[in-house]
Amino acid sequence: MKIAELRIKDFKKSIDFYEKLLSMGVSSKNMERFAQFKFEGRNISLMNAYFDRDNPDLTVTKGQYVEKFDNLLAIAESKNTHKFVFNFWTENLAEERERILDLKISSLVTEIKYVNNVHPYYYFQVEDPDGNVIEITGNYDGDIKE
């Protein structure tokens, strides 16, 4: 099962962001059109929304199948409503926040916060290059800034 497939605007920038965030390289890639990060039996897929538009005459034959490309530009350029949030878990939340701050991969890195929805937990948020919100949760023993 996939976690998500994102149609993104800047393929190289997004790959760089997710490689650093996930501390792993791309697991598989199809031209400059598609990249996957596979971990723990799941994956995140990045689809370059501009590839199909920039390669209108490209066809790829795989056996008896001819791959047709879709122009995904409208999806990638639509307003990000921030209704979808990735949620990742880490052993040490404070260390992970410092690691991400040191990487300088996001203009938004919130303070660590506490919430009690279904159960109490701590988290902080970052944004990917397309403005998708990523929530990092995990073990935390520190104080929360008010």
Rank of each mutant, 00 (worst) to 15 (best):
V85C: 10
L22T: 03
A4L: 01
V126S: 10
S78N: 12
M31I: 07
S45T: 11
K13E: 15
F39E: 14
R42F: 08
Y121A: 02
N87S: 15
L103F: 03
A76P: 07
F84D: 07
K12Y: 10
T61F: 07
L21S: 07
A74E: 14
I3D: 09
S107M: 05
K83E: 12
T81C: 06
Y122P: 06
L22W: 07
A35D: 01
G138P: 00
F86A: 02
R99N: 08
Y65R: 02
S106P: 05
E146K: 15
N132D: 04
F69Y: 10
Q125M: 14
Q64Y: 11
E135Y: 02
Y123F: 14
Q125I: 12
T61W: 08
N132Y: 03
E98R: 06
D52E: 13
Y50W: 10
I105T: 00
I100W: 02
S27I: 05
F124V: 00
T137G: 13
E96A: 06
E127L: 15
L6A: 04
G138F: 04
V60H: 01
Y123W: 10
K145V: 08
F69K: 00
K113L: 03
D102T: 06
E91T: 05
E135I: 03
H119W: 13
D16W: 12
A35T: 05
R42Q: 13
N92L: 12
K104W: 07
K68M: 12
A4C: 09
S78A: 13
G131T: 01
N139G: 13
M1T: 14
I8Q: 05
K12P: 08
V118F: 14
E111I: 10
N30T: 07
A94D: 02
G63R: 01
Q36C: 12
Y122G: 09
A35E: 04
Y65H: 08
T81K: 10
I100N: 02
V133C: 10
F34L: 08
Y65K: 11
F88S: 10
